[in-house]
Simulated scan of single mutants.
Amino acid sequence: MRHHAYVFDAYGTLFDVHAAVRRHADKIGPDGQQLSEIWRAKQLEYSWTRTLMGSYADFWQLTEQSLDFAFLKVPSADKKLRQDLLDAYWRLDCYPEVPVVLKALKADGARLAILSNGSPAMLEAAVKSAALDQVLDDIFSVDIVRRFKTDPSVYDLVTTGWRLYPDAVSFQSSNRWDIAGAAKFGFRTVWINRTNQPDEYRDLAPGLILPSLKGLLTGD
């Protein structure tokens, strides 16, 4: 079923969060995947703890801090690559189907936006690098409310900004916890389960589960 308003999470949904480490895999060595997974896990953990404490720091600061922690946990990785990895994070690869899907939805008359933990500068850089700036109507960053997902005030950025009821919005995310938060808020939710993860948060089920964004066009 097509909708009039589609909102997408950015990191892990449109942009591959592991692309930065993969770009320098030869220099990092055999523990690159571990480094990348720790980097991502801590980035999210810091966002949740900061929100619970009421001590906001923008997502770029958390990205830097979580990479530093990852280097401590993976001593085999060369810390001299720190700046290279951070620079690469500003130009993350988008998933292959993303441009085609977003352009098709836009051509169909849909309104499109990103709703992300990312700072405005991070999101603007990623969107321009992936040449998505021509198809997106808005980029909503948590920086406005200074709280991270899954705080309800984050999802309210869309309904207030677009003057819509929550159930008028189709929200897509690869992060199951994000889908739970969006479902609780009242969005119609689509979990993009790229890596075939088991379901959780059973009381806050997604409206639809797809292996990639292509299913928004094909229904599977």
Rank of each mutant, 00 (worst) to 15 (best):
S170T: 14
E124V: 09
S153N: 01
K149A: 04
T160K: 09
T159L: 11
I114L: 09
M122A: 05
W162G: 13
A121N: 15
I139N: 03
Q134C: 13
S119H: 10
G161D: 09
S116Y: 02
A180E: 13
S119F: 10
P166G: 13
S141W: 01
G161R: 09
W162V: 12
V145A: 01
D138G: 07
D143G: 06
I114V: 15
V142N: 00
I139Y: 01
I144P: 00
K128Y: 09
P120N: 08
D178T: 04
A121W: 13
S119L: 12
Y165L: 11
S174E: 03
A131W: 06
A168G: 14
D137T: 13
I179T: 08
I179G: 05
S174K: 02
K128V: 12
A182L: 04
L132E: 10
W177V: 11
S129P: 01
A130F: 09
F171T: 05
D156R: 13
I114K: 03
K128I: 09
V158H: 06
Q134T: 15
G181E: 09
V169E: 13
P152F: 06
D138P: 06
T150M: 01
V169S: 12
A121V: 15
V127Y: 12
V154G: 10
A125D: 14
W177N: 13
P120M: 07
K128S: 12
K149W: 07
Y155K: 11
I179N: 05
S173V: 03
Y165P: 00
F140H: 04
V127K: 11
P166W: 12
W162C: 13
I144M: 01
S170I: 09
K149S: 03
P120G: 07
S119Y: 10
G118R: 09
S153W: 00
S173W: 05
R146L: 00
